[in-house]
């Protein structure tokens, strides 16, 4: 087995079984805030126990091990074809070991061949950089939260949402309202203002590579992130939609240019089982360090 293959299997295992520290910390805070004796508190207690069990048993935090999305930052000259082939092999092996559920279905025939491989599965995004290092990040995104994502086209008359930041705020909060607890809240929003229908969603998902406690360098977007987080947590939707104080753990927003005719706001929702991990590889392609 090549070093890269071993590294990628370990990346998948850890992503599936362990939540990053920033997500854990946010969940601990939300448990402290919920009113004692409520079903919201019960839900968060079960979530905490689940996180601990998954880590100890090295088994999936959630049985929906989701869409498998790799983001690779690599130097010029790096063999992307080889890397993608190895990523596919790693997914197949991780599935055999039970780190991933047999989770990939042929959309036309309905067949699930149990390998987790097929068109678009897994997805591997490459990005060249001028550094000599190879960084590979992985997001496992479950279907329940993916289904409550939404894309709005402004103006959205029924929501009184015009083509400005207030309009963006209105549609983002509408997405939170419509999602209720169905995306396994408390959730995290990744948002892209602008772009086209494809890049809007693509960039919204890339926001999930940010840590929960970072701040947006753009003051306008930072203010919008903080405002939406605060407002959403005043709506009383709560963990699992049971009612309660924590509806969202974080909001991350980016902007992309648009053509004059279009104004999309694309919102991806991530469940509390926010499976994000990453590694920096050594020259020998073993795991040098963890990114989260």
């Amino acid at each position: 087995m090549s070093a890269l293959l071993e590294s990628l299997i370990e990346l998948i295992r850890r992503a599936s079984a362990e939540l990053p520290d920033d997500v854990n910390a946010a969940l601990v805070r939300s448990l402290e805030q919920e009113k004692k004796g409520t079903i919201a508190e019960s839900a968060l207690k079960i979530i905490e126990r689940n996180i601990e069990l998954a880590k100890r048993k090295s088994q999936p935090i959630c049985q929906d091990t989701g869409s498998v999305i790799f983001y690779v930052d690599c130097p010029v000259g790096f063999d992307q074809i080889e890397c993608e082939a190895t990523a596919r092999e790693a997914v197949k092996e991780a599935t055999r070991k039970g780190f991933l559920r047999q989770n990939s279905v042929d959309s036309i025939t309905g067949k699930n061949d149990g390998t987790n491989l097929g068109p678009g599965a897994p997805t591997v995004h490459f990005h060249q950089h001028r550094e000599s290092t190879i960084e590979i990040r992985l997001i496992l995104k479950g279907g329940g939260c993916e289904n409550v994502g939404a894309q709005y086209s402004l103006p959205a008359e029924s929501l009184h949402a015009n083509r400005d930041l207030d309009g963006c705020r209105r549609v983002i909060l509408d997405a939170v309202l419509q999602a209720q607890g169905r995306g396994c809240g408390p959730g995290i929003l990744g948002v892209c203002i602008g772009g086209d229908r494809a890049t809007g969603y693509e960039f919204s998902k890339q926001q999930f590579l940010r840590k929960l406690d970072d701040r947006n360098p753009d003051p306008k977007l930072d203010a919008l992130e903080q405002d939406i987080l605060k407002t959403a947590n005043e709506l009383g939707i709560g963990p699992m939609g049971f009612g309660g104080k924590t509806t969202l753990l974080g909001v991350k927003i980016c902007a992309a240019n648009r053509v004059p005719a279009s104004f999309f706001v694309s919102i991806s929702y991530m469940c509390w089982a926010y499976r994000r991990q990453g590694v920096v590889l050594t020259a020998g392609q073993t795991i040098g360090s963890w990114l989260y």
Binding site: I46, N50, A54, Q59, Q63, M240
Partner: peptide, 13 residues
């Protein structure tokens, strides 16, 4: 009966 979404380990136990 609403189970806790994502709590795959607690429920598998």
């Amino acid at each position: 009966l609403h189970a806790i979404g994502g709590a795959a380990q607690v429920l598998a136990e």
